[in-house]
Design a protein around this nucleic acid. Structure first.
Lengths: 351, 351
DNA sequence: AATTTTTTGGCCAGCGGTTGCCGCGGCTGG
DNA sequence: CCAGCCGCGGCAACCGCTGGCCAAAAAATT
């Protein structure tokens, strides 16, 4: 009575093992082999080694595969080969719009090349980031680190294991995609100088942020060149809230123009200053970085040094995929340009 | 001469197979078994079947595992079991901030439960969405569909295969997480009525959007209740640009208050109206939906019917994970509340 | 026509875990 | 004192696909 003898019912699965969850498990190369009368390994080759089997059997197998609606089992494939057609992207903060464009760029490029994107966030913490990265390493072919907070050495260690591409930071020996800030900053500072500003403040981002340091360097250099005084202020977090909190320091600094590490800070700062009755840009000019979604919603709309974030994301993905599939390993640093986008939050100083 | 006899060199890998990419491949349960002197199956059980082995050997194995820095190979595990500790999230548009919070909510919940999130986007297309979903099904344990554009039937078909949770839409027989719009809409419409408005327009979203239909229903019902006239307008795309484009229709409609399918539309609409010299909210009130990032950056800040997007994301993930791990299958619809957030873009009609 | 070379397909040993089944030793109970 | 049960560990059969190796068949060469 164990076998109710289902009469014409479709193929009673012999060993009652793992039917995908409902009844019909999906087809395997063995099913195809049985149908076509060839060996499973031939099916495998037909499906993944172009040219390894004769045109005739290839056709035979492809037809059967289509018929059975076969799809490879990625796990079964990954096991012997180690290839997973998957790569990871770790961002510092998922809710930070800066990363939205990066994520989208990477996802789009991945999809085009038939790769799958796995996402994780580090919550701006170096250790969380490293943990996430380690976890991912087991399951992906490569990794993109956007604005990583961990050590250069940790990154290099990771990179020894599988291909890694870094965005928004330059790490020796690891392929990177970094916005070249100097052009945009130069434009911003010159514009400020031309508008009569003499002292500019820079609100820095996270201490571990390589990009924050670059931007500060750039601001200093540009200010020196334009004979402006530059002061550096610290922020607690690179968020709207952080921007609000830094407002009093900005006021205290006596600067008439301020560049902030990112747009979020700029927006928060502007909100707080306006709430305190300061008129932007008449009394103080504000310039952000990145040109995130929403930067043009504010009143006045935010002047900002734009980084092509979406391009960074897709370039990084492309770099990684080339590394993965391709032969040569260029592994250099890819620099993308930045540019000043003048909107309403910066301008001539009135007073 | 095939075996160069490397003397004290660290373990020459016998078969020159697949060293993780550099030299040292990662440890397997076999390595642990060798070190501890037990059978691999015992190691497997120790690591995944709590209580199946004695406390003593468990300790032994755990120590060895820590020592060797062992991590399970997810693929090897997935092969026999079918479980992958992974779930997919498909969103209509990655760049739409509405989804940011959903993504984050889901990612966070996933991480807590040691699951990995795989992300894909459908670009607002039903077919792309279905394709992506099918592809994912092979590699994930379950799927979250945020604002799906495909047929109910397609969704149900998918759901027969693996657990599926839907956000922002109600599909019979599939667990869903939907914001209950009526409360928020009621508040919005009453507030509008109280401010002297008599005719309100609703700018609809994508035709396939279930949520857009719900919102329109809600607006109609609330308007009827408050004895207001409601007209429906169509938008080309549920984006800022779409909002801009619909501005002339809004003006032509003669409505003095407008609710839009989402905040993006509201923002675009407001920008365009203001550019045309219309004063918001004095001449026209605007109310959005969702309360996305940036909704409070505008001038005036946007009044909106907030949906708890982050909560939707994490609830959906929790639902899915419960379904996956848990025993019972509740599979109902989870309703979350919405509320009106009054900011500056709505108010008393002056004229 | 005989031989060498190239195709083409079969065989089989894994990849790293999981799991059903079995057996052994110890504890309990009659 | 012995049967019976339970806890714990070993054995081995997969999961679905890949790839090295080899032999048969086909094509090219002499």
């Amino acid at each position: 009575m164990t076998e109710p003898k289902t009469p014409d019912d479709a193929a009673t699965p012999g060993p009652v093992k793992k039917p995908a969850r409902n009844g019909k498990s999906s087809a395997t190369i063995y099913d195809i082999a049985k149908v076509t009368g060839v060996n499973p390994s031939t099916v495998s080759r037909a499906l993944s080694k172009p040219g390894r089997v004769s045109a005739k059997t290839l056709k035979l197998i492809e037809d059967a595969a289509a018929e059975l609606n076969y799809q490879v089992n990625p796990f079964a494939r990954a096991l012997p080969t180690g290839r997973t057609s998957t790569f990871g992207l770790i961002v510092a903060d998922i809710t930070n719009p800066t990363f939205f464009d990066i994520i989208r760029g990477a996802e789009t490029t991945a999809a085009v090349r038939d790769y799958t994107l796995v996402l994780a966030e580090s919550a701006e913490s170096a250790v969380t980031e490293l943990t996430a990265a380690r976890r991912m390493m087991a399951t992906v072919d490569g990794l993109i680190l956007a604005s990583p907070r961990m050590d250069d050495d940790d990154i290099r260690t990771l990179a020894r294991d599988k291909p890694v591409v870094v965005i928004n930071r330059e790490v020796d020996g690891v392929p990177c995609v970094v916005p070249e800030v100097n052009k945009g900053i130069g434009e911003a500072v010159r514009s400020l100088a031309a508008n009569g500003h003499r002292k500019v403040a820079f609100v820095a981002g996270p201490a571990q942020s390589w990009m924050s340091a670059r931007r500060w360097d750039g601001v200093q250099a540009a200010c020196e060149w334009s004979r402006l005084e530059a002061v550096r202020l610290e922020s607690a977090k690179p968020t709207v809230d952080g921007g609000r909190q830094v407002a009093r320091d900005v006021l205290a600094s006596g600067a008439t123009a301020v560049l902030t590490y990112n747009d979020l800070l700029a927006i928060g700062l502007m909100q707080e200053l306006q709430a305190a009755g300061v008129v932007v840009p008449d009394q103080i000019s504000i310039v952000g970085f990145d040109d995130i979604f929403g930067a043009d919603f504010t009143t006045p709309p935010l002047t900002t040094v734009r980084s092509p974030l979406g391009a960074c994301g897709s370039s990084a993905a492309r770099l990684l995929l080339d590394l993965l599939q391709g032969t040569g390993e260029p592994a250099g640093t890819l620099r993308v340009e930045t540019e000043l986008v003048v909107r309403g939050s910066s301008g001539r100083l009135l007073s």
